[in-house]
Amino acid sequence: MQVRVDITLKTGVLDPQGEAVHHALGTLGFDGVNSVRQGKVILLDLAETDPAKAEADVAAMCEKLLANTVIENYAITVL
């Protein structure tokens, strides 16, 4: 079973990388971009076949390792 985890910085946490990308887009003439937030995507291939269990397992993985919940949020999508 394929599971996708999106990890993003929490609202209010400064994202200097996102700001640098935002600035570069402006330089390229892409006006009208209000803000840019950069995050990461982790794709997992699990042996588990029950979507609910897979989601619970991945939530535990996020809490223990994949995300730093002090500054990051995570969103789990069972694909």
């Binding site: 200097p16 002090v70 500054i71």
Partner: peptide, 16 residues
């Protein structure tokens, strides 16, 4: 910090 022995987080330097 990652081990939970100290609070907070160490993020990318503001100047990148």
């Amino acid at each position: 910090i990652e081990a939970g022995l100290l609070p907070g987080a160490l993020m990318r330097n503001a100047g990148l």
